[in-house]
Computed example of a mutant assay.
Amino acid sequence: MTAKRTAIVVAVVFVAYAVLLGWRGALLIGTGDPVAIVLGIAVLAIPLLGAYLVWRELQFGRQTETLARELEAAGGLPVDDLPRRPSGRIDRAAADESFTKYKAEAEAAPEDWRVWFRLSTAYDAAGDRKRARASMRTAIAQHARTP
């Protein structure tokens, strides 16, 4: 629940930032000076791009949460029983060992969104966030294709 609250706070802060930045962009455009108009348009583009990126991240989180609930209802969520260091981080060797199992499952059934979801959690446990997000995107795409 903390991640969801953090996302909401970030979205609210972004909206405030976008409104203030948009207002400044409109003021620059309103001056009539050609350089200020170009700068104002550029300033208006920043919140638009930011809004798109925030929307994409919120969609990714919502879709991931939907898949997690569905997998949990079916009893297919991976159990978080990996040993942890005193700092709370997962032991890297144990995460790597667990990862091998989930990678083999994904290779055996590449069209099954469930194995991609589990592979994503294994990548995350191993500390590879980039591949974890890519695997989760694959799980989301496979889930969308599932009848």
Rank of each mutant, 00 (worst) to 15 (best):
R118Q: 04
A134R: 11
D80E: 12
I37S: 05
D91G: 11
A51R: 13
M1W: 08
S135G: 04
I90Q: 03
R131N: 08
R145Q: 07
A18G: 04
T138Y: 03
K103V: 07
G127M: 09
T121Q: 10
G25E: 04
V79C: 04
R24N: 11
F60K: 10
A94D: 04
V38Q: 11
L77E: 00
A73V: 08
I29F: 12
A125I: 08
G40T: 02
I41K: 13
R131Q: 10
A126P: 03
R118Y: 06
K4W: 05
V12G: 01
G25T: 03
T2F: 11
L82A: 00
G61V: 09
E105Q: 06
F99I: 04
T121W: 10
R145I: 01
L58C: 09
S98I: 01
P34C: 12
T6V: 13
R133T: 10
T66K: 14
I41Q: 11
R118F: 02
L39I: 15
E111W: 03
G76C: 05
K4G: 03
G22L: 05
E57K: 14
T121P: 00
G50R: 12
K4A: 06
A126N: 08
I46T: 10
I8M: 09
P110L: 03
E105D: 01
A18V: 01
S135N: 05
A94N: 02
A16I: 10
V79K: 08
V9G: 00
A126D: 03
G40P: 07
T64H: 09
R89D: 10
R92F: 08
L71T: 00
T121S: 10
P147A: 09
S135C: 09
T66R: 14
E72C: 13
I29N: 07
Q59I: 13
T146R: 12
A95W: 04
E57N: 15
P110I: 00
D80L: 13
G50L: 14
F117N: 01
D124F: 15
A11E: 03
L77Q: 03
L119N: 04
T138E: 05
F117M: 01
A7S: 06
R129P: 08
A45E: 09
T31I: 14
A141Q: 01
P110W: 02
R137T: 08
D81M: 09
A11G: 02
A104L: 05
D91A: 13
E107S: 06
R133H: 10
I37V: 14
G50A: 12
L82R: 08
W23V: 13
P34Y: 12
T2G: 05
G25D: 05
G22I: 01
A94K: 03
A42L: 15
A68Y: 02
P147L: 08
F60L: 12
A141C: 04
V43P: 04
D96Q: 09
M136E: 00
I37P: 01
A3P: 02
V9I: 08
L27A: 15
